[in-house]
Design a protein around this nucleic acid. Structure first.
Length: 955
RNA sequence: GGGCACGUAGCUCAGCGGGAGAGCACUACCUUGACAUGGUAGGGGUCACAGGUUCGAUCCCUGUCGUGCCCACCA
C-alpha cells in the first residue's frame, strides 16, 4: 500500500539501502558482462569539502545519464572519488591548528603535520561521499578512489618520471606567480586579475653626467610606474627605437635615484611611445614583461623582495653589487620593510628629492591569489614546469578531428583559444600536502629523477663514485644507510600541483599504470560532465595527459553545464551569505525535487537561478505523481502477465499508448542529445497534462463501472502507462520512482535495472569489441526487452476520438466559465448535425463528458435549437440550450469575436496564396498546409455565421 | 585590447525560418469519489532597436544600444 502522504525523507533513506544492498550500481555486474560499457568519471570533489549547489547540479546530470544508460542495458561505470586538494586542505588544517592554539605546521614539522592531515581526511573525508549518496548518485561506490591513494600516487610518479625523461618536464629559473602569504608558487590559472584603484607615479631618473635639476628636463628621463618600490631592482630603462624624443639617450645611462646604481637606457619595441612618458623602467626580477626585455638586452636581474614580500637588501649580493659608497645605509634603513609600506616610504623619499614629476590616479589589473586573496608577486625562483605547448598539440587535434566533442559546441572555441596560447605549466608547490616530487639532489645540485628513492639514490651514488666525489666504499655505506647520506643526497621538498594528479583521473582510477581489465574495458570514458570554470584547470589537462599516455582522448563528449546562482543571479559565496545548501533543500523537499528542478533548468544558455520556491514546485510535481499512483492502486490497477498494450481495444487505452509512445521518444531523444531540460519538461508535461489531467479522468467511468472487458483493459492500461512513467522518470527522480515501482507496481527487480521503454540503437562494431563476450550485444539475458515498441506505435484514429472529447470538454468548460454558469448548474448538450463518426463515438463518452463538463444530458438533433450557445468542436456544432440563462448580447459578442478570428485566418492564408512567389518558392507541403488552413477557416466562419443567425432569430 | 553569451508575458526562463510557449505571480470560480503539496477557466507580449537576406524573420546576416562572463603583460 502506498502511504497517504509523500514523505521523501523516509523513501530516500530506505531506497539508498536497497540500492546499496543489491549492488545495483556495480560496474561489471555478471548480468552485464556482454553489454557495452558506459563510463563517466566523477569530477572528484575536495576530500574535505561538502556538497554545494554546483556539485548538486553536476552530479544530478551525471546520474541522469548513468541511470538512463544503465536502463538501456549498458554496463555502467560511474567512477567516484575525491581529490586531495593540496592548498585548500593544507589551509583548512593549518587554520584548525591555529584555532585550537596547537603548534603550527612548521613547529610540528613535515611528518607530524602530514599525519595530522591524514587524520583530518579520515575524520571528514566521507562527508561529501555520503552527501552525494543522499543526492542519489549511482556511482560504483566500491571503486571509490582518492588522488593520494597508493595506486594513484604510483601513476603520478610514473607520469612525472616519464615526462621528465622525455624532456616534457623540466626545472627552470624564471618568474613565477608567487603567493607571499602561502609562500608557494602557483600557476597562471590560480591567479585572478582584479581591478584595483591606485596611482601612476612619474619618476625622474637623472641622466648620467648631467647635473640633476627638477627644472631642467634635459637632466633626467621620466618613467611611469604603478609599482615605485620595485625601482630598487631596476636594471634598465627602455625606450622605443623609433621614438625621436629619446634616440640620443639610447646607449647612455641613468643613475637610479636613492640607490645610485648605473642603469643602461636601451631601445626596445616593448616600450610604447603612447603610454606614460614613452620611457619605461625595466625590473627584470619583478615583472614578466621586464623579464623578457631584460633577456633581450642582457640586463641583470635583481630581486629586491623576499618570499614574504618584504624588501630584502642587506646581504643581497645582487643588490649591493656595483653600488657607490654610502648606498648600504639606505639598504639598512629599508631592509625587511613590507612591499606596501616600502612603496609609501620610497615615494616620500623620492618626492623629497624632486624625483617625482607627478602622480596620477590610475586603475589597473592587479594579480591576486585565488586561495589567499593576497597580491601575487612575480618572483624569481627555481620551479618545475610541464612543457604544455608540446602536450597541447595532440589535445587540440583530438577536438579538431571530432574524437572529442564539446556540448554545447561553442566551448570548443574557448578550449582552442587557451590551448593554442598555452604557457609552461608550473607544477611545483612549496607545500607539504600532496605528491612529493620524485627528484633527488646531489651536493652539486645535480638532479636525479626516479620512481623510487632507492633507484634515484643508486643512480646518484653511482654517478658521484664515477666522478670520484666519493669512494666506492662511501657510496656503499650511503646506499645502505639513510642517515649516512643525509645532507649528501636530499629529496626535493616540493609537492605537485593538485591538478597534476587530477589530470590522470580518467585512467589512474582504473588502475593504470598496471594493465588492468578495467583500463581496457572502461577507457576511454564516454562523457565528462563539468562546469565551464574548470575547462582549463582540468579538462584541458586530462586531454593532454590522456592522449600522451593512453594514446586516446579520455572522453568522447565533454558536456559543459552552467553555474548555479542565487535567485537574483548573484554568484553564491560565503561572504555574500547567499549560499543555498543543497542538503537543506533535500531535507525540506527531497532529493528528487531538487534533482528535477535542476534538470528542468539545465539549458545551455543561462546560469541557473535557484530558489527554494523552484524546488518546491518540483516537489509538488512529485506529490502529484505519488497521488496518481495511489489512484491507480485504489482502483486495483495491476499489470496482468503478458499484457500487450498494442493490442488494446478501447480507444482511450489506445490513445494513452499513443501518447506514451510519443513521450518516450521525446525523452529518449532529448537524453541522447544531452538536452536535460527538454527531457525533463517533456516528462513534466506528459505526467501532468496527459496522464493526470486527461487519461486518469477519462478512465474513471470505466474503472468505477461494471466489471467487464472495458474495466479490465483500462485497469491494465492505467498500470502499464504508470509503469512506463516510472521508468521514464527514474533517471531524474530515482527515489520516488523506485519506491513506487516496488510498492505499487510490485514488479520483480529494481527499477534502476529495469529496461528502458525504448530499445536503443544497435551497438557499433567498436562498441561490441569492448563488450566482453561474443553473445548478444547490448542486452544481457536477464533484461527482458519491452513488449511494446514505442518507436513505431501511433494511432491517429484514437487520437481523433480522444482529441474530440478533450476539445469538447475544454470548450464547454471555457464557455461556462465565461458565462458565469455555476458548477452546480447542469446544462444539456445538443450535438447538432453530427457526423456519423461523432454519432458512433459519442455514446462511449456520454458519462465522462457529463461529469467533466457538468452536463445533465447529451442528445442529437439536426439543427441547433434557437437561443443556444453554439460551439464549434472539430468542425461540428455542439450547442448548450441556455435560452433565458445566457446574455444574448454577450453571446453575440463572443461569436463576433470568433468570426473575426476566422476572418483573420482566412485573410492571412489567402494573402499568402495570392502571392505568386509564395506558391512558387515555398515548400509544397507548406503551401498545401496553407490551403487547408484556408478551407478550415472558411468552414468555421460559415458555421459561426449560421450560429449567429440562429441567435438573432431567437432574440 | 581579444573572445563568448544573453536582451521573448509582471518575474524566472524555454522555443527558433511558415499562426507567440511553460512555471511562478495575478483574476474569477470550485472542499467533484488520487491529489488544496489540488482542480477549472481567464487576463497579459510590435519576441531590445535599426537595416538586410527571404515568398515569408522572434528565429539567419550586419549594425546600434543594454546586460553578464572569460582571457590578456600594458608602464
Amino acid at each position: 500500500m502506498i502511504e497517504k502522504n509523500y514523505q521523501p525523507a523516509d523513501i530516500e533513506a530506505r531506497m539508498s539501502v536497497v540500492w546499496e544492498d543489491s549492488l545495483a550500481f556495480k560496474a561489471g555486474r555478471p548480468d552485464r558482462r556482454d553489454a557495452v560499457p558506459f563510463t563517466i568519471v566523477i569530477p572528484p570533489p575536495n576530500v574535505t569539502g561538502s556538497l554545494h549547489m554546483g556539485h548538486a547540479l553536476n552530479n544530478t546530470l551525471q546520474d541522469i545519464l548513468c541511470r538512463f544508460e544503465r536502463m538501456r542495458g549498458r554496463d555502467v561505470l560511474w567512477q567516484p572519488g575525491t581529490d586531495h586538494a593540496g592548498i585548500a586542505t593544507q589551509m583548512v588544517v593549518e587554520r584548525q591548528l591555529m584555532e585550537r592554539q596547537q603548534p603550527s605546521r612548521r613547529e610540528m614539522g613535515r611528518e607530524k603535520f602530514l599525519e595530522r592531515v591524514w587524520q583530518w581526511k579520515a575524520e571528514s573525508g566521507d562527508t561529501i561521499i555520503n552527501q552525494l549518496k543522499r543526492l542519489g548518485a549511482s556511482c560504483d561506490w566500491s571503486r571509490e578512489r582518492f588522488t593520494m591513494d597508493e595506486g594513484l600516487s604510483k601513476a603520478v610518479v610514473k607520469v612525472f618520471v616519464e615526462l621528465h625523461r622525455d624532456g616534457l618536464i623540466y626545472k627552470d629559473k624564471r618568474l613565477v606567480n608567487w603567493d607571499t602569504k602561502l609562500l608557494t608558487a602557483i600557476s597562471d590559472l590560480e591567479v585572478q586579475q582584479t581591478e584595483v584603484k591606485g596611482s601612476l607615479w612619474y619618476l625622474r631618473y637623472p641622466v648620467e653626467g648631467k647635473i640633476f635639476s627638477p627644472d631642467d628636463p634635459a637632466s633626467f628621463i621620466v618613467v611611469a610606474t604603478t609599482r615605485p618600490e620595485t625601482m630598487l631592482g631596476d636594471t634598465g630603462v627602455a625606450v622605443h627605437p623609433d621614438d625621436e624624443r629619446y634616440q640620443k639617450l639610447v646607449g647612455k645611462h641613468i643613475i637610479l635615484p636613492l640607490v645610485g646604481r648605473k642603469v643602461a637606457i636601451v631601445a626596445d619595441e616593448y616600450s610604447d611611445p603612447e603610454k606614460g612618458s614613452g620611457a619605461v623602467k625595466v625590473t627584470p626580477a619583478h615583472d614578466f614583461n621586464d623579464f623578457e626585455v631584460g633577456n633581450r638586452h642582457g640586463l641583470r636581474r635583481i630581486s629586491v623582495l623576499d618570499k614574504e614580500g618584504c624588501l630584502d637588501l642587506l646581504d643581497n649580493e645582487d643588490y649591493l653589487r656595483d653600488l657607490p659608497e654610502g648606498a648600504s645605509q639606505f639598504a639598512e634603513e629599508f631592509h625587511k620593510v613590507d612591499r606596501f609600506a616600502a612603496r609609501k616610504r620610497i615615494v616620500e623619499r623620492l618626492e623629497s628629492f624632486g624625483f617625482i614629476e607627478r602622480i596620477e590616479p590610475h586603475t589597473n589589473m592587479v594579480p591576486h591569489g585565488d586561495r589567499s586573496g593576497t597580491v601575487i608577486e612575480p618572483y624569481l625562483t627555481d620551479q618545475w614546469y610541464v612543457d604544455a605547448k608540446t602536450l597541447a598539440k595532440p589535445a587540440i587535434a583530438a577536438v579538431r578531428s571530432g574524437e572529442t566533442t564539446f556540448v554545447p559546441k561553442n566551448w570548443e572555441k574557448t578550449y582552442f583559444e587557451w590551448m593554442e596560447n598555452i604557457q609552461p605549466w608550473c607544477i611545483s608547490r612549496q607545500l607539504w600536502w600532496g605528491h612529493q616530487i620524485p627528484a633527488w639532489y646531489g651536493p652539486d645540485g645535480k638532479v636525479f629523477v626516479a620512481e623510487t628513492e632507492e633507484k634515484a639514490v643508486s643512480h646518484a651514488l653511482g654517478y658521484y663514485v664515477e666522478q670520484e666525489v666519493i669512494t666506492v666504499e662511501q657510496g656503499r655505506e650511503m646506499a645502505l644507510d639513510r642517515n649516512k647520506r643525509e645532507g649528501f643526497i636530499t629529496r626535493d621538498e616540493d609537492v605537485l600541483d593538485t591538478w597534476f594528479s587530477s589530470a590522470l583521473w580518467p585512467f589512474s582510477t582504473l588502475g593504470w599504470p598496471d594493465d588492468t581489465p578495467e583500463v581496457k574495458r572502461y577507457y576511454p570514458t564516454n562523457v565528462l560532465v563539468t562546469g565551464w570554470d574548470i575547462i582549463f584547470f582540468w579538462v584541458a589537462r586530462m586531454m593532454m595527459m590522456g592522449l600522451h599516455f593512453m594514446k586516446e582522448a579520455p572522453f568522447s563528449t565533454v558536456y559543459i553545464h552552467r553555474l548555479v546562482r542565487d535567485e537574483k543571479g548573484a554568484k553564491m559565496s560565503k561572504s555574500k551569505g547567499n549560499v543555498i545548501d543543497p542538503l537543506s533543500l533535500i531535507d525540506e523537499y527531497g532529493a528528487d525535487a531538487l534533482r528535477f528542478a535542476l534538470a528542468r533548468e539545465a539549458a545551455h544558455t543561462h546560469d541557473i537561478k535557484l530558489s527554494s520556491q523552484l524546488v518546491e514546485i518540483n516537489r509538488n510535481f512529485a506529490t502529484k505523481l505519488w497521488n496518481a499512483c495511489r489512484f491507480a492502486e485504489m482502483n486495483d490497477c495491476v499489470l496482468p502477465e503478458g499484457f500487450e498494450p498494442a493490442k488494446a481495444k478501447e480507444p482511450l487505452n489506445r490513445w494513452i499508448a499513443h501518447e506514451t509512445a510519443q513521450a518516450t521518444r521525446e525523452v529518449t531523444e532529448a537524453l541522447e542529445a544531452h538536452t536535460f531540460n527538454e527531457a525533463a519538461t517533456a516528462m513534466y508535461r506528459f505526467v501532468l497534462n496527459v496522464y493526470c489531467d486527461w487519461y486518469v479522468e477519462l478512465a474513471k467511468p470505466a474503472l468505477l463501472g461494471v466489471d467487464g472487458p472495458l474495466r479490465a483493459e483500462t485497469r491494465a492500461m492505467v498500470a502499464w502507462a504508470r509503469d512506463e512513467i516510472l521508468k521514464l522518470l527514474h533517471p531524474f527522480m530515482p527515489f520516488i520512482t523506485e519506491e513506487l515501482w516496488e510498492v505499487t507496481a510490485k514488479r520483480d527487480g529494481l527499477l534502476a535495472l529495469a529496461p528502458w521503454p525504448l530499445k536503443p540503437a544497435a551497438p557499433t562494431p567498436e562498441q561490441l569489441a569492448v563488450a566482453a563476450g561474443p553473445t548478444d550485444p547490448l542486452i544481457s539475458p536477464v533484461l527482458v526487452m519491452p513488449i511494446f515498441d514505442h518507436a513505431d506505435f501511433t494511432d491517429p484514429k484514437a487520437e481523433a476520438e480522444i482529441g474530440w472529447v478533450i476539445d469538447l470538454v475544454t470548450q464547454i468548460r471555457s464557455v461556462r466559465a465565461e458565462m458565469n454558469i455555476p458548477p452546480a448548474t447542469l446544462t444539456a448538450l445538443v450535438l447538432a448535425g453530427a457526423s456519423a463518426g461523432t454519432r458512433e463515438r459519442a455514446p462511449r463518452w456520454t458519462e465522462v463528458i457529463k461529469r467533466m463538463a457538468r452536463l445533465s444530458d447529451i442528445s442529437f438533433v439536426d439543427r441547433a435549437p434557437d437561443g443556444a450557445v453554439q460551439l464549434l468542436v472539430r468542425g461540428e456544432v455542439a450547442a448548450l440550450p441556455l435560452k433565458g440563462v445566457i446574455d444574448v448580447a454577450a453571446e453575440r459578442a463572443r461569436l463576433d469575436k470568433e468570426i473575426a478570428k476566422a476572418d483573420a485566418d482566412i485573410k492571412r492564408a489567402e494573402s499568402k496564396l495570392a502571392n505568386e512567389k509564395f506558391v512558387a518558392n515555398a515548400a509544397e507541403e507548406v503551401v498545401e498546409e496553407e490551403r487547408e488552413k484556408r478551407e478550415a477557416a472558411l468552414a468555421r466562419k460559415a458555421k459561426l455565421l449560421e450560429a449567429l443567425e440562429r441567435l438573432k432569430q431567437a432574440s
